[in-house]
């Protein structure tokens, strides 16, 4: 349940970037390998924001698939498990293209002052 910690960190950054305005939508980008359970994150977001200026703010999770690119044969593979082997030629000489993201992508500021 580190989703609660993540939501607290998201809320802290969003409040900082809100510049005193109401924020009604936050989009986060979470890589497939980051061990985040979307439903837990959404539930934690409600708990963390309840009774704060962010109450009712929608959290949108953009799930980023884990993709590796093989340096040997050039094939790109989408992985479910973090086993960093090319699914084409089994080479371990691969580069992780995406899947480790843990980002706050954007916030929507409504212009309404809340503080």
């Amino acid at each position: 349940m580190h989703e609660l910690s993540l939501c607290q960190a998201i809320a802290d950054t969003v409040s900082e970037r809100a510049e005193g305005q109401r924020v009604d939508r936050v989009e986060v980008r979470i890589g497939h390998f980051r061990q985040v359970v979307p439903d837990s994150l959404l539930f934690s977001w409600e708990l963390i924001t309840d009774g704060t200026e962010l109450a009712g703010c929608e959290l949108v999770i953009d799930h980023v698939p884990a993709v590796i690119s093989c340096q040997a044969c050039g094939q790109e593979s989408t992985l479910d498990m973090p086993i960093l082997l090319c699914t084409g030629c089994q080479s371990s000489d691969v580069r992780l293209v995406s899947g480790e993201e843990l980002l706050i992508a954007s916030i929507d500021r409504t212009g309404e002052r809340v503080s």
């Binding site: 960190a9 980002l103 706050i104 992508a105 916030i107």
Partner: peptide, 21 residues
Amino acid sequence: HTGYTQTGTERVSVLENILAE
């Protein structure tokens, strides 16, 4: 979701690592 046109709403790009702090 770009082109979201709710009056007065501004989408601000953040691109900060959640665990930055």
